[in-house]
C-alpha cells in the first residue's frame, strides 16, 4: 500500500512541473499585460506602466520570472493575485466550496440517473426502451455545454419561470457562511425559503454540468451490465434459485460497478473543465468563473496558481478513486 502511494507521488512531481510550465507560458503568450488591463480604458502613463511592471517583476527575462515562480512554489507560496492583492491560496479556498458543491451535485445527478438508466437499457436490450436510452445518452454526451445551458435557461427560466437565471441564492437571504456549501448553510440558517431558493439556483447548473457524466455513466453501466449478465456466475446464481432482482443487483450490477467507478473517476477532469463553462454561464461564483475572470485580467499568479491547484484536486480525486476501485474490486484489494 505504501509503495503504491510512493509510486503515485513520483508521478505527481513531473506532472506539476509540466502544469507550471504550460500555464506560465500560455498566459504570457496572450496579448496585453495585467497592468494595462488594470488601468482599463483610461490608459496609463508609460513611465507609471514601466514602474508597475518592475514592481510586479514583469520586467525580468522570462527564464528569471519562471525560476522565481518555481522557487516560491517549492517554498509553498503560490503568490498574490495582482488584482485583489489577496494570496492565490486564500482566494482559491474561499471559492472552492462553491465549485465542490456544484461538482458533487452534478456527479450525484449523473450516478442517480445514469446507473438506473444503464441497468434498464441492459435488461431491456434491443427494445425501444434500450434504443431510446442509448440515443438520448449519445445526444447528451455530444451536447455542447454552453448551448445546452442556454436552451435550458430559455425553457426553464424564461418560458416556464421555474428557475432563476444565475447566482447561488436569492438576494433577499443573507447569512454568514459556515461551511461554504450553500445547501448546508441555507438549511442551518433556518430562514424560511432559503434552502428552497438555494436548490432552485443549483438545479440548472447541476443538470448542465451533470449531462456529460450522466451519459458516460449510463453508457458504461449498460455495456458493463451486458458483459456481467453473460458471465457464468450469473447463470450459476440462477441455478441456485437466486431471484431475478437479486441477480441484477447483487451479482450483475455489483460486478458492473468496477468499470463504472473507473469512468466516474475519468469524468472528474471533464467535470472541472465543464465547471468553467457552466459557472461562467450561470454566474456561479466558483473556481471556474474565477479562473476565466483571472485570465481576462491577465492575473498571472492567479491563473498559474489556480490551474496548479485544480490539477492537484484532479490528482487527489483520482487517487481516491483508485482506493475506491480497490474496495469495489476484491481482486485488486488482495493483490496489493
Amino acid at each position: 500500500m505504501l509503495s503504491f502511494f510512493l509510486k503515485r507521488l513520483a508521478v505527481v512531481v513531473p506532472t506539476f512541473l509540466g502544469v507550471t510550465l504550460i500555464t506560465f507560458s500560455l498566459i504570457r503568450l496572450a496579448p496585453g499585460d495585467p497592468v494595462e488591463l488594470l488601468a482599463g480604458e483610461r490608459g496609463i502613463d508609460p513611465a507609471r506602466h514601466a514602474q508597475m511592471r518592475a514592481e510586479l517583476g514583469l520586467d525580468q527575462p522570462l527564464a528569471v520570472q519562471y525560476g522565481r515562480y518555481v522557487w516560491q512554489l517549492v517554498h509553498g507560496d503560490l503568490g498574490h493575485s495582482i488584482v485583489s492583492k489577496e494570496t492565490v491560496l486564500s482566494e482559491f479556498l474561499t471559492l472552492f466550496p462553491e465549485t465542490i458543491e456544484l461538482a458533487v451535485c452534478a456527479v450525484t445527478f449523473a450516478v442517480v440517473f445514469g446507473l438506473p438508466a444503464g441497468v434498464i437499457a441492459a435488461t431491456r436490450r434491443g427494445t425501444a426502451v434500450d434504443h431510446t436510452i442509448i440515443g438520448v445518452s449519445l445526444t447528451g454526451y455530444s451536447m455542447p455545454l454552453f448551448w445546452w445551458a442556454l436552451l435550458l435557461i430559455m425553457l426553464c427560466s424564461v418560458t416556464l419561470g421555474l428557475t432563476p437565471v444565475s447566482g447561488r441564492i436569492s438576494v433577499i437571504y443573507y447569512f454568514e457562511p459556515v461551511t461554504g456549501f450553500m445547501l448546508i448553510d441555507s438549511w442551518i440558517s433556518g430562514q424560511v425559503g432559503a434552502f428552497a431558493s438555494a436548490v432552485r439556483h443549483l438545479a440548472l447548473p447541476t443538470v448542465v454540468l451533470g449531462t456529460i457524466p450522466l451519459a458516460a455513466v449510463a453508457r458504461m453501466t449498460r455495456s458493463a451490465m451486458l458483459e456481467a449478465l453473460g458471465q457464468d456466475y450469473v447463470r450459476a446464481a440462477r441455478a441456485r434459485g437466486v431471484p431475478k432482482f437479486q441477480l441484477m443487483t447483487v451479482h450483475a450490477l455489483r460486478n458492473a460497478l468496477i468499470p463504472v467507478v473507473t469512468v466516474i473517476g475519468l469524468q472528474i477532469g471533464v467535470l472541472l473543465s465543464g465547471a468553467i463553462l457552466t459557472e461562467t454561464i450561470f454566474s456561479w461564483p466558483g473556481i471556474g468563473k474565477w479562473l476565466i475572470d483571472s485570465i481576462a485580467r491577465r492575473d498571472y499568479p492567479a491563473v498559474q496558481g489556480g490551474v496548479l491547484l485544480v490539477a492537484a484536486v484532479v490528482i487527489t480525486v483520482n487517487l481516491l478513486i483508485d482506493l475506491l476501485y480497490g474496495w469495489v474490486n476484491p481482486r485488486i484489494r488482495h493483490a496489493r
Binding site: Y233, R240, G241, H251, R331
Partner: peptide, 24 residues
C-alpha cells in the same frame, strides 16, 4: 420453479472459477 431450483435440484458446473462471483 425457482423455489425448486437450487434447493431440491442443484447443479455443479464444469469451471468452478468462472461460476463463482468474483466480488463475493
Amino acid at each position: 420453479r425457482r423455489r425448486v431450483i437450487g434447493k431440491d435440484i442443484a447443479m455443479v458446473f464444469q469451471e468452478p472459477a468462472s461460476n463463482l462471483d468474483p466480488c463475493y
